[in-house]
Every structure is written in C-alpha cells, then in structure tokens.
Nucleic acid binder design. Structure first.
Length: 468
RNA sequence: GGCGGCGUAGCCAAGUGGCUAAGGCAGAGGACUGCAAAUCCUUGAUCCCCGGUUCGAAUCCGGGCGCCGCCUCCA
C-alpha cells in the first residue's frame, strides 16, 4: 500500500486518488528571475520519481510544473539589463528545460506560465471578490485573511503570532485592511509590464497563478501538490486559502514538500548569491551521479551538496556500471537471449524495494536494497549461475533502476577508445604471453596516462575510460 | 519572540516499539591475479545526554545540550 506524507496533516497517509486510476500532480517549478540551481533540480527529480513510481503502480499520471515568469525581480533584472522581461524569462526557462533533459527527467505534461493564464487568473480573483473573500483597493486586490477561518492550517501558524513575530517586516500599507492580507493583484507602476483587468492595469500577485493554473489543468480538487519546504509559508498557505475560498471545496490531498539543498551547511539563496548553478554542476558531473546523489537521501530531508559527496556518489554508481559490463560480457546485451525468472533472493529484494518506495517514496532505503541486489548478482556470477538466471536477475535490476530513472544509458558496452589504444592493449597481451611483466606494466602506465585502465578477465582484457 | 525539523559507525544515510541496527564511501585482513583492476568473503555503532512510560525504545513522553529551516523574494 502506497503511503505519502501530507504536510497539512503532518503524517503519512494512504494514497487514494481523487479520480480512480489517475493522479494529478502540481509542482512549483521556479520563478525565472535567475538561472536554475541544484535546488531546482531537486523539484525536477522528486516530481519525476513520483511520476515514475505512480505510473509503475498503474496510475495514469498528469504532471504540471509551473513557471512564474512575471514578478518584481524579473522586472528589475530586465530593467538592469535593458531587455524585455520576456527575454529574462525565456532564457532561464530554456536553461531549466535543458537541465531537465540533462538529468533524464521526463517532460511534464504541462509547463504553464503565469503570463499565458491572465484570463484564468483574473477570473479567479474576480470570483474571490464576488464571494467576499477579497477586496479591491487603489488598483490592488487583497485577500482578506481573517475572513478565511482555515488560514494557517498548512503551516500551523495563527495570524496573531505571525503579526507579532514579523511586526517589523510585514508591509504596512494603507491600502490593506489588515497587515496580514496578501495581494492577488498589484497595480502596475510606471514603466512596468501590465495587463488590463477590472481593477485597472496591473499584474498578478505571486500566489494566485498557482491556484489558477493548477485548477485549470488538474481540476479544483487534485491529488498531489509539491515544492520546497520554504514554500509552505506563505505561498502554499495562501494558495489553499484562495483556492478553497473560491471553490468551497478541498483543494489538495497530499502536500508534498522536499527538503532544501544546502551548500556546506548553508541554505542556497538567491538573496545571498550563495548557490551553485546547474550549469556549473552539469559540466563537472555526469547526470547519473547527480541523480543518484539527490535520490540517496529521502526527499523530505535536507541535503548537503558538496564535491566530496558527489565523488562518493560517482564511486557508488560504478558498482552498477561494473556489473552491467560484466553481465554484458558473460550473457550478452540486454534483451538478447533466453531469460529465466530471477532467483528467489532477487525476487525478495525486489519486494523490499517496492515496500520502501511504498513508504513515502523512500528512495534512500530502496537504493540500499538495490546494492543488495548487485551483490547477489555478483555472487551468482562468481558461483557460475546459469546465463538465463543471470539475465532474469539483470532484468529485475533494470526494472527497478528505471523506476528511479537511473543508469538508463548504461548497457554494459565497452567504452569507445582513442586511436592507438587498442594497439597498446594488444602489445601488452603479447608481452604478458611472453611473461614480460615489466613491459606489460609499462604499457598499463602508458594507458593510464592516456586516461584508460585495463582489466584482465578470463575472456580477455577489458579497456575502460578512467573517470575524471 | 512564534512555528517546525534534525542529532544513528571516520564520512554519508535507511530504520519510528520487539529477529544479530539496511546500504554506500573510506579503512583493515583474506580469496582471485604475474602484479593489478573488477568481484567475492571477513571486519566497525554505549543509536547526543539525563530522566520516564513499557515485559521490551534508536524508535513514545519530559527535560537538557547542539545544529538547521521558516516567519521576507526563494525549489
């Protein structure tokens, strides 16, 4: 039975879809004010693995990831660079999409942008005004928080504490009836982009777009809404208030919040400039390494991103690659040849993997079981198990790796080698046949200098590229 | 000040009442190898501290210490 944690209830709940057989998921993607960083990749990965696993469980999944492509910072950045705000948005959205592909995340079904949904946003604001939950004031429109009794149920805060705690920071604005009210629509300042609305020229506040767009693509009540923990308050709290006040019904069943990605103990933050861009990461580490690393901690935990951690992940990943290479050598490529059912030990491990994933997507536990599976397969190889059994075991490993989206490109083929390398390997073979060990080792050093390592197996030498 | 989270072997990290506390990285010993590599075998934990509940707690409750996040744009 699949259980998924829900921030609102503060516990794992059995997953029961709103509509039988299908799942609607909405994740807050990014505000495209600056380049995507590793933190954004965690959303991409968490949503991707949720989708893969729910699909594995037989659901028809619709995934929506939004882009906030209009806000103060984007406008400021555009003015600073002297370009249209759309240019800033386009550039960063393109990068986000490129890194999704880099990581091997499947495309979402929809990537809605705020600026493409002004009609829906304005309609929703109007509904809230009509229902008495919001009020126009000086070209702005505000949500009246005190009129919504459920306010604070997600973030477990009450309004008075909020005001007291943040008294120095809450905007004091004479257009608001109460300091805790938040804007649904903001009047356009001179020189800013704007859209026409019943309240004059302006643009949406930050929170309303997610309500409008999620309900457009997934309905007024859907299954999973996700994002980073820092979005719990105020963004998601406000989203619940707006959406439920507008529709009069429950909005989301499972609020899924992943932990933040830190760099050496400190949160990455746009305001401090303390973050790593994906561009930097993608140049230095292969996709599987980044993916493996991000999945080796439970999604709700914080995770520290460091070179040391990434290098460990790279070493760990090699265990899988080595196994696939050995298997390809012994029993041929995947899909070829007769396969028997995997051995009982492997079938048991498969069950444990699924149990872990059923338990709120415990990818860290699941990966632990995967290493058990690797060991069992290596043991079977060592003990000379039948090729059909090995093929069966390999297909289970592949099935489970696919759920995590790992090692999809790794088929165990030999590495491409540069010119002259094979000749050296052959020469080394001759030297070894003549027991000229000194020459053989010398050639091995030469190969290492060129970036290759050679392993002697019963089936002959295997050349591999050294990992940089 | 308010709200919330975390503290498990050298490092990372599962486990949330009951078999010998997963797994990875690093380390040590062994097998295999001409030597390696890969692989296999063996090897490491007073579960932050102090009380309490319980037949039984890493796991629940109370207190303490330490670290972190949110309350303001942020995945």
């Amino acid at each position: 039975m699949l259980k998924i944690f829900d921030t609102q209830e503060g516990r794992k709940k059995e997953f029961v879809p709103v509509r039988e057989g299908s799942v609607g998921m909405y994740f807050c993607g990014m505000t495209v004010q600056s380049e995507p960083h590793v933190g954004h990749m965690r959303v991409a990965l968490v949503s991707d693995v949720f989708r893969r696993y729910l699909r594995f469980k037989g659901y028809d999944v619709t995934l929506v990831i939004n882009f906030t492509d209009i806000d103060d910072k984007i406008i400021a950045k555009a003015q600073e660079e002297g370009v249209e705000y759309t240019e800033i948005a386009r550039r960063n959205i393109d990068k986000f999409m490129a890194f999704l592909r880099f990581l091997g995340a499947e495309e979402a079904d929809h990537y809605p942008r705020a600026t493409d949904h002004m009609g829906e946003i304005i309609d929703l604001v109007q509904t809230l005004v009509d229902r008495g939950h919001a009020y126009p004031s000086g070209g702005d429109v505000y949500f009246e928080v005190r009129k919504w009794p459920g306010y604070g149920k997600l973030s477990k805060r009450n309004i008075d504490d909020l005001i007291a705690g943040a008294s120095e920071r809450v905007d004091v604005d004479e257009r608001k009836r109460n300091p805790e009210d938040f804007s649904l629509w903001k009047v356009a300042k001179e020189g800013e982009p704007y859209w026409d609305s019943p309240w004059g020229k302006g643009r949406p506040g930050w929170h309303i777009e997610c309500s409008a767009m999620s309900m457009k693509y997934l309905g007024e009540h859907f299954d999973i809404h996700g994002g980073g923990t820092e979005l719990i308050f105020p963004h998601h709290e406000n989203e619940i208030a707006q959406s439920e006040a507008a529709t009069g019904k429950a909005y989301v069943n499972h609020w899924v919040h992943h932990g933040l990605v830190n760099l050496v103990g400190e949160k990455m933050s746009k305001s401090t400039g303390h973050f790593k861009t994906m561009e930097e990461i993608s140049k230095r580490f292969p996709p599987d390494v980044v993916r493996f690393y991000l999945l080796s901690t439970h999604y709700r935990s914080e995770i520290e991103f460091s070179d040391e951690r990434l290098h460990e992940a790279a070493t760990a990943i090699e265990r899988f690659e080595n196994l696939f290479r050995t298997l390809a050598r012994l029993v041929g490529p995947e899909g070829d040849g007769e396969a028997a059912e995997a051995s009982p030990g492997i079938v048991e491990i498969r069950g444990k993997f699924i149990d872990a994933m059923d338990d709120d997507l415990n990818t860290a536990g699941a990966i632990g079981h995967l290493f058990d599976l690797v060991r069992v397969l290596n043991q079977e190889i060592e003990s000379g198990a039948d090729a059909t059994v090995l093929r069966g075991g390999r297909s289970v490993l592949r099935e489970l790796l696919d759920i995590l989206g790992l090692l999809r490109g790794v088929r165990g083929e030999s590495d491409e080698v540069a010119e002259g390398v094979l000749q050296l390997v052959e020469e080394r073979g001759r030297a070894r046949a003549e027991k000229n060990w000194a020459r053989a080792d010398e050639i091995r050093d030469e190969l290492a200098a060129k970036g290759y390592t050679v392993e002697d197996t019963p089936e002959g030498p295997v050349v591999r590229k050294l990992k940089g």
